[in-house]
Amino acid sequence: MEAKRKLIDDKGKRLDGRTWDQLRPVKIEVGVLKNADGSAFIEWGKNKIMAAVYGPKEVHPKHEVMPDRAVVRCRYHMAPFSVDERKNPAPSRREIEISKVIREALEPALVVEDYPRTAIEIFVEVLQSDGGSRVAGITAAALALADAGINMRDLVCGVSSGIVDGQVVLDLNDSEDKEGSGDMPVAIMPNLGLVTLLQIDGIYTPDHFKKAFELAIEGGKRIYEMQRQVLLQKYFGSSPAESTAEEQE
């Protein structure tokens, strides 16, 4: 096995030049698809993800109807060209799992009781992938839901934190995700102060966990501010358009 490379240099800079608590550049657009009821597109680092919401609409097959609430369906899918080596377009084990956790991360924010006997369908399509695509997908899907005009108690925003070279860092990119020793995606409803997604990969000490969790919450709030600006910009055209962090040439 080849020797492990250093992911954080002596000056505390990461591979892409960020410090431990910096996010990658994020760019979000809402209402990009004409035929969807709601949609959003997010570029987060090298991630390029499209989220679309259809519904509320009739439930098919009929036996899945719930008489008192809406059925929420979610599909996370990676395009065959989204990774270096062509990915088989059939849903993999990983995609099925991520579809489930994204659905469960978004469902608490939706007022499903307002739409009985209907289905709300969420599609998250990864066009180009980098680390943290599930949280980027959740962030975009929450905006697509708000764009579709479905009653929501709060937006949902996600960000991941993790352990790289023994240090807690925010927003892991692909190589940090693969070569680092821990990855923790977190999704929150910032106004309600609730966590809707918390997954951990790797071994954490209680101390590391606490630090990484708090860092993710803090990062999530920064993402929420961007979501907010983008939504207001789309619907009122008022607030400054610049949502992104540091955009480099």
């Binding site: 708000a146 009653n151 937006l155 106004n191 207001l232």
Partner: peptide, 9 residues
Amino acid sequence: KQVIPGDVI
């Protein structure tokens, strides 16, 4: 007031 989901009115 301009609001988005989750805002306190």
